[in-house]
């Protein structure tokens, strides 16, 4: 007798949430970065709606500072699954003068993404944006709801959140509001990796150990790319074997020294690791409240 009891409860929960989004909203969209969390979401959606198709498009807010491997992977996945992909560029928002590029050593386009995202939500009248954020990532995220209501300005009011009881998700909103949905809220980084390994999902190559031109700053390892990543004269470039734990904006995503070249060794490395993945994102270190402030402004 084959029973579904063997299926992971986090996977069951995520599928339930994705089905609720499709049922409760008119125009949902899945925010796709090409990273492991959003790939996991796409795969979960594939399972949730089978044998039907995924009933919403993907949207990538492109900072223009992506690792080329990520973009190549994104396009392949979208083609494989026959999905609709919308791309909106931060560069365009800069060119239109809607946002101003940051300057200097710690400049990144992470903050600027927010403006482009809010414009895109407006443009397509999306009422639900599905994201791959997890509560274990950061302290302020720990309080995020699974259905998180944003006001007409895309802002998050952490003191005025709807209580979420049992399995019940209240997606009722007014015109102009939208909801951020986090189906893998309860997953940890290790849960995501273990799941990817178990299912054998393909992910971008930069997650695996590879030779790369890099330089050191503040004890962290940065990808060498003078077009995108700011570098001081005395920060010298060298070639090392590294991998990335997240695939964000190149200018603020640090690499780790690693020999983990396949999924099994990545899972082992995460298990043994003593640094959180956000520890490798410089913009979270700027201040202890960095994330919370960004969220209040509409960052996902």
């Amino acid at each position: 007798m084959k029973s579904t009891a063997i299926i992971n409860s986090l996977e069951n929960e995520a599928i339930y949430i994705l089905r609720e989004v499709a049922a409760q909203f008119e125009r949902p969209v899945l925010l796709f970065s090409g990273g492991k969390d959003s790939i996991t979401l796409v795969r979960l959606a594939q399972k949730a709606f089978y044998p039907g198709k995924i009933p919403f498009p993907l949207m990538h807010i492109d900072t223009g500072h992506n690792f080329p491997e990520t973009i190549e992977f994104r396009d392949r996945l979208v083609k494989e699954l026959g999905l609709e992909l919308i791309v909106r560029n931060v560069q365009e928002s800069i060119d239109k003068g809607k946002v101003v590029e940051e300057k200097g050593k710690y400049a990144s386009r992470n903050m600027l993404q927010t403006g482009t995202l809010l414009d895109a939500i407006e443009e397509f009248k999306f009422d639900a944006c599905i994201g791959g954020a997890r509560r274990d990532e950061e302290k302020a995220r720990a309080k995020e709801r699974i259905f998180s209501v944003r006001d007409d300005f895309g802002q998050w009011d952490e003191k005025n959140q709807r209580p979420e009881l049992f399995d019940m998700l209240n997606g009722q909103i007014d015109l102009g509001q939208n909801v951020r949905v986090f189906p893998i809220s309860n997953w940890t980084e290790l849960d995501v990796w273990s799941y990817i390994a178990k299912e054998g999902f393909e992910i971008p190559s930069i997650y695996f150990a590879h030779q790369r031109k890099v330089f050191f700053r503040d004890g962290m390892i940065w990808s060498f790319d003078d077009d995108v990543v700011y570098r001081e004269e005395d920060e010298v470039c060298q070639e090392l074997t590294v991998r990335f734990r997240t695939v964000g904006d190149m200018s603020c995503t640090a690499a780790v020294l690693s020999d983990a070249a396949d999924l099994a060794s990545v899972v082992q490395e995460i298990r043994d690791s003593s640094i959180s993945e956000r520890g490798a994102r410089i913009d979270d270190k700027r201040s202890d409240s960095a994330m919370e402030k960004r969220k209040q402004q509409g960052y996902f």
């Binding site: 007798m1 084959k2 029973s3 599928i15 089905r19």
Partner: peptide, 10 residues
């Protein structure tokens, strides 16, 4: 396909 849908499975 499965024979049993266990509680809490989607």
């Amino acid at each position: 396909k499965y024979d049993t849908a266990a509680r809490r499975s989607s």
